[in-house]
Simulated assay, not measured.
Amino acid sequence: MKTQKVWFVTGASKGLGLTLVKQLLNTGAKVAATSRSIADLKKAVDFSGDQFLPLAVNLTSEESVADAIEKTIGTFGQLDVVVNNAGYGMTGALEELSDAEARTNFDVNVFGSLNVIRKALPHLRQQQSGHIINISSVGGFYGMFPGFGIYCATKFAVDGFTEALSEEVKPFGIHATIVSPGYFRTEFLNPTSLSMPQNPIDAYKLVRDSEALHLSQIKGNQPGDPEKGASAIIKLADVENPPLHLFLGEDAYNMAYAKIDAVKRDLESWKDVTVSTGF
């Protein structure tokens, strides 16, 4: 009989994380799920069985994260799949976002995930198995979104450290995957998940137009189905050789190829310069 995996999912009280947790519980999996508010998490998931462990966690605190991992191991006896899903969006031109605004976005989207990885890996290494799934964004590969530079930078960071991580943990039988969704119909563009600049600069009309487009036209009309996205993530944990990169959504697929083609054009157009710089 196949043993159900133990999952640890951050940012589970809404959006893709909530959909994922609900689907996992329906399959019989054991799930430790985190949110800043345990009351919000319990209400959103609405599950009372002993296979569900809701946890209030401050991801920017190493102590809080370590405590959550230990509670997961203590409750379920093991840890198999870690999903770093917690994060939030931020708009604003680079000039108009303050150092504090930018650093706070990095603290949650980047350093929060690193805290989880750092505390989970000793257990995964000891059992010589596991899978770390980091939820990035197509904006971590394709950054041509005016007004989303800091958010894209956080997701580029996630992509970069996950690629290195995949090589570092391979000898221990551990997998790492970057999941890069396009636009999915979640709360991502709601005020609770999307931070706006505190001191906008009027000159950045292109940025204001992009913000308006996202809030008035894209919000509520995103093409991605969160149920299908969650199912794709669950599928990752069941394959012997999961991919390093998984883009979700036709829009993400097309944007990824647009970036690849643009880089190829620049490489070939400037090849003479590129290869002329050696000794």
Rank of each mutant, 00 (worst) to 15 (best):
M1W: 05
M1S: 13
K2N: 05
K2G: 00
T3L: 07
V9T: 08
V9R: 09
G11Q: 12
S13C: 09
G15K: 12
T19M: 07
L20V: 04
K22Q: 14
L24N: 09
N26R: 08
K30D: 00
V31M: 03
T34C: 13
S35L: 03
S37L: 04
F47T: 05
F47E: 14
S48K: 14
D50P: 09
L53P: 10
L53C: 11
L55A: 04
E62Y: 00
E62T: 07
S64P: 08
V65Q: 02
D67C: 03
A68W: 08
I69Y: 02
I69F: 01
I73A: 02
I73E: 03
L79H: 06
D80M: 04
Y88M: 11
M90L: 14
T91R: 12
T91F: 15
S98V: 11
S98M: 11
S98I: 11
E101D: 14
T104N: 12
F111V: 04
R118D: 03
H123T: 05
Q128T: 07
G139N: 09
Y142R: 03
M144L: 08
G147T: 06
Y151K: 06
A157F: 07
A157N: 08
V158Y: 01
T162D: 04
E163I: 09
V169D: 07
V169T: 13
K170F: 10
P171W: 11
H175S: 12
V179R: 06
S180N: 15
Y183N: 10
R185Y: 00
F188T: 03
N190C: 01
S193M: 14
S195Y: 03
P197F: 10
D202W: 01
A203S: 09
L206T: 12
V207T: 14
S210E: 15
H214E: 06
L215H: 11
S216P: 00
Q217L: 09
Q217A: 10
I218S: 07
K219T: 08
K219E: 08
G220L: 11
N221K: 15
Q222Y: 02
Q222F: 03
P223L: 10
G224M: 12
D225V: 07
P226I: 02
S231I: 01
S231C: 00
L248E: 05
I260F: 14
D261G: 00
A262P: 08
R265E: 14
R265V: 13
D266I: 12
L267T: 10
S269I: 03
K271V: 01
V275L: 12
V275H: 04
S276D: 13
